[in-house]
Design a protein around this nucleic acid. Structure first.
Lengths: 188, 188
DNA sequence: TATTTTAGTTACACATGTGTAACTTTTGTG
DNA sequence: CACAAAAGTTACACATGTGTAACTAAAATA
């Protein structure tokens, strides 16, 4: 029973996403969110006790989606194909990255928030597993030197995916450039 | 004449810098700044009409320092030496980078702000000139392929300098790793 | 020492954000 | 149809931020 909802969880996350991207964490307010969804602030407070819990929950949800996505890389391919597969998937979740960067700014206003921040941290590891797998393949194929530190290599890949496309190249060619830089840097 | 100042411009910029790093642009308030300097808010308002003009002025000042710094790379060295020289200097101005990223979030509350944002944009070019010079040298020495796009290469270098040092390696070894990644990517 | 000038403080009016309590609307069900 | 349950709104109290006007403090100088 009860009356029909004016906004779905999808709506909520959609607008949360957009707002976080455009105004950042500190600029994000419940007023702005309510306004962009088209309901009153209090309607959102019925579902989430405060801004912090709403945002951390959004992040956990996004992280789950991302881990799922990355874990679907086809690991039976060659190293280079795996890398390409990976890069395309990582490229799709670029702004997610940016958003997850806000996690450290969230105040521990409640135990729940503190715990979910911890959860988020642990999930970060899950994000790295597929990458580790790809690097392992690269080492097996003799493309990557055995003695190189995996963690640095994957930080490198994560960092490059966030490289701004200032020239506004088509995604495909831009990804090709990134792949080239990852594989061989600036040298011939 | 008049009474002695309680805080110098240096003090002001120092605390502005620290605050921007720790709380970000949206979290930055005149109250926090005044508090960390140890004066009243109004004392700062005597010098800057609002937060926006204060911050944009700080950015212009920082940018000037950075351009000056980068332009002092010794361009009579070999490509690899130039690159190393450059990386050390860029590493010193890492957080500057982060701070300049906030520029787009500053509201155009006055003509002055709008103009200084424009100035800042133009200065960005000045930051690239020494990098272009180094890349040119690399091409001349036949290390970088002639047909590669300079702008992408320098975006790449800028991006890598911001790579987080999650393993907390000593700066020297970390810079060595970055240099290696820039030169050859992940391949042997 | 009285005056001028500059630096700094206090206190106000205003704006925007938060979280909640009391109320209203809409829906399904006995 | 009336009434319980869920969803939504309005209005309030409170907190924090902004910018300014009136005031006070300290130093140079005539």
């Amino acid at each position: 029973m009860g009356r029909d909802k004016k906004f779905s969880e999808q709506d909520l996350w959609h607008h949360t996403h957009q707002l976080l991207l455009s105004v950042g964490y500190q600029g994000f307010t419940m007023s702005l969110l309510a306004q962009s969804i088209g309901v009153s602030r209090a309607a959102i407070y019925k579902q989430y006790p405060n801004k912090e819990e709403l945002i951390i929950q959004f992040m956990v949800w996004q992280m789950e989606k991302s881990i799922e996505n990355l874990s679907n890389v086809n690991f039976s391919q060659s190293f280079e194909q795996q890398l390409e597969d990976l890069l395309v998937r990582m490229f799709d979740m670029r702004d997610l990255h940016q958003i997850l960067g806000f996690a450290s700014q969230i105040n521990d206003v409640s135990l729940v928030v503190k715990q979910k921040k911890e959860v988020l941290n642990n999930m970060h590891g899950g994000l790295y597993i597929p990458l580790q797998q790809v690097i392992k393949q690269g080492k097996e194929e003799g493309i990557i030197a055995e003695d190189r530190n995996n963690f640095i290599l994957l930080s490198f890949i994560f960092q490059l995916i966030d490289m701004p496309n200032h020239l506004n190249m088509p995604i495909e060619s831009f990804l090709k450039e990134i792949k080239l830089l990852i594989l061989h840097g600036i040298s011939k």
